[in-house]
């Protein structure tokens, strides 16, 4: 099944973020990929709910793309979730507007993969920290996939960053083709691994 991707990008100061600049620049220009820059669109946090709902209905894959500030998303994305995912529309009785759509987080973290573990100083895994998003998607009857993550951004060299950005681009193209089963993707800890560990588009 062919997919249409909506990237909900939330970064209050992307002009100062190497990693996210690289990631956003790698997004392939494609009619079926919509890059939606929330902080640029709503600098006053006044989210246009009707417009956002229409965007959601127009797409089948929703990506929450944001830096992983304090183990969560920047406040505008939370604002977006609070305002757009309305009771009776996204969840609750009759709330089936988003049913069957795919959702996941694409995040950047300063700390490396190892520090997000029992032994690491962040004590929990990324997947654990993302539980609220997981449950949000679940409540809205969406299919929640593992995150795409660029980690240890502070120490990544320019070449490394470009490599990660290339993975993001590939991920988007694979998702567009739609020759995957969502259940098949749950085996990965990160969607990055789907790109790096297999050349097989069909899962």
């Amino acid at each position: 099944m062919e997919q249409r991707i909506l990237i909900l990008f939330a970064h209050p100061r992307v002009e100062k973020s190497r990693a996210n600049l690289a990631l956003t620049r790698s997004i392939p220009p494609h009619p079926d990929i919509t890059f939606h820059d929330l902080y640029e669109r709503y600098p006053d946090f006044n989210v246009d709910v009707a417009y956002e709902k229409k965007l959601l209905l127009d797409h089948s894959v929703i990506i929450w793309h944001h830096p992983f500030y304090w183990y969560s998303a920047p406040p505008l994305l939370k604002q977006w979730i609070d305002m757009v995912l309305e009771f009776g529309w996204a969840y609750g009785p009759g709330g089936t507007a988003l049913k069957g759509k795919i959702a996941f987080n694409a995040i950047t973290t300063g700390g490396a993969r190892e520090v997000y573990s029992r032994e690491g100083y962040n004590r929990f895994t990324i997947r654990e920290f993302l539980t609220p998003f997981d449950q949000t998607a679940h409540l809205c009857k969406m299919i929640y996939l593992p995150p795409f993550a660029v980690q240890g951004t502070h120490r990544l060299t320019h070449e490394h960053l470009l490599q990660k950005a290339g993975q993001y681009s590939q991920l988007l193209l694979r998702l567009l083709e739609g020759r995957f089963r969502p259940e098949g993707l749950q085996q990965y800890l990160f969607l990055n691994d789907w790109i790096t560990q297999t050349q097989d588009v069909t899962i």
Partner: peptide, 20 residues
């Protein structure tokens, strides 16, 4: 707070990892 450039500079001066 949101300026990762600044953060990176600081981190490169002080070795231990700083944020999440």
């Amino acid at each position: 707070a949101w300026d990762s450039e600044h953060m990176r500079e600081t981190i490169s001066k002080h070795v231990p990892e700083a944020d999440g």
